[in-house]
Computed example of a mutant assay.
Amino acid sequence: MTKAARDFGEQVAEHHFIVDNYPGFERQPLRGPANGNDQFDQVWEHEDGRVVVVEAKSSIGTELGHRTLPDGHKVSQGSLEYFMDIIAKMEARGEFKTARTLRTALQNGNLDYVVVKGERNTGRYTGYRYRRFDISRGPCREHHQYRPP
């Protein structure tokens, strides 16, 4: 994925999806590698303990990522196994506060885990789609959101 495409997906998530669906949430700093591996794209927290984790994609055609766990199993973004493996990577690099916040939100039912994708367009912003994951039972239905330019 090019840097421009990655940046577009991140901007759609931050400036449209979060604004539309999670007002009052603050973006949390992440210290993962610059290449984006072993981390979530965005983590947002509300003062009341609710947390949203965003996987940002540049377009609706961009597939979910996957990773290979230490035991050799491949798991997809949106699965509990993927989520917990990323938390383990965060803890290994010293992101204890954010990892603890994510574990607590998951345990308390205060966590939303979503993928946000920019809508297909021809050089003009046409909105986004998102899907909320239930990491105990798999992905939920996809939602469409149009946000005029």
Score class of each variant (00 low, 15 high):
residue 69 L to N: 03
residue 31 R to A: 15
residue 10 E to A: 03
residue 123 G to Y: 10
residue 133 F to H: 14
residue 73 H to A: 11
residue 74 K to R: 11
residue 109 G to M: 12
residue 137 R to M: 14
residue 80 L to P: 01
residue 49 G to D: 08
residue 87 I to R: 13
residue 122 T to I: 01
residue 128 Y to N: 05
residue 84 M to G: 07
residue 114 V to I: 13
residue 99 A to R: 00
residue 78 G to D: 00
residue 88 A to W: 02
residue 110 N to Y: 12
residue 2 T to M: 06
residue 102 L to G: 02
residue 83 F to N: 02
residue 131 R to T: 14
residue 111 L to A: 00
residue 74 K to A: 12
residue 135 I to C: 04
residue 132 R to A: 14
residue 72 G to R: 08
residue 3 K to T: 07
residue 73 H to E: 08
residue 71 D to W: 04
residue 19 V to N: 04
residue 41 D to E: 09
residue 66 H to N: 10
residue 66 H to I: 06
residue 65 G to R: 13
residue 142 E to A: 13
residue 58 S to L: 01
residue 11 Q to N: 15
residue 137 R to E: 15
residue 126 T to D: 09
residue 122 T to K: 03
residue 74 K to E: 15
residue 43 V to I: 15
residue 90 M to R: 11
residue 138 G to C: 02
residue 4 A to F: 03
residue 46 H to M: 01
residue 32 G to L: 03
residue 76 S to N: 12
residue 22 Y to D: 00
residue 48 D to C: 04
residue 29 P to K: 11
residue 41 D to Q: 07
residue 25 F to E: 02
residue 131 R to I: 12
residue 94 G to P: 01
residue 90 M to I: 08
residue 114 V to D: 03
residue 40 F to K: 01
residue 140 C to R: 15
residue 23 P to I: 08
residue 104 T to R: 11
residue 132 R to E: 15
residue 61 G to A: 08
residue 23 P to K: 04
residue 29 P to D: 13
residue 96 F to I: 12
residue 46 H to K: 07
residue 118 G to K: 01
residue 149 P to V: 09
residue 4 A to T: 09
residue 100 R to Y: 07
residue 30 L to S: 09
residue 44 W to N: 02
residue 124 R to S: 10
residue 25 F to W: 02
residue 100 R to N: 08
residue 93 R to F: 07
residue 17 F to I: 04
residue 147 R to A: 11
residue 40 F to C: 09
residue 146 Y to F: 13
residue 97 K to T: 14
residue 23 P to N: 09
residue 105 A to P: 04
residue 85 D to C: 13
residue 55 E to C: 03
residue 19 V to I: 11
residue 143 H to K: 14
residue 139 P to I: 02
residue 70 P to C: 04
residue 107 Q to S: 05
residue 42 Q to G: 07
residue 148 P to M: 05
residue 148 P to L: 10
residue 6 R to K: 06
residue 31 R to D: 14
residue 94 G to N: 01
residue 132 R to H: 13
residue 37 N to Y: 13
residue 36 G to W: 02
residue 6 R to V: 08
residue 6 R to E: 12
residue 34 A to Y: 10
residue 10 E to K: 07
residue 107 Q to K: 07
residue 76 S to E: 13
residue 99 A to C: 06
residue 88 A to E: 06
residue 113 Y to C: 01
residue 84 M to E: 15
residue 29 P to R: 14
residue 92 A to S: 14
residue 56 A to K: 01
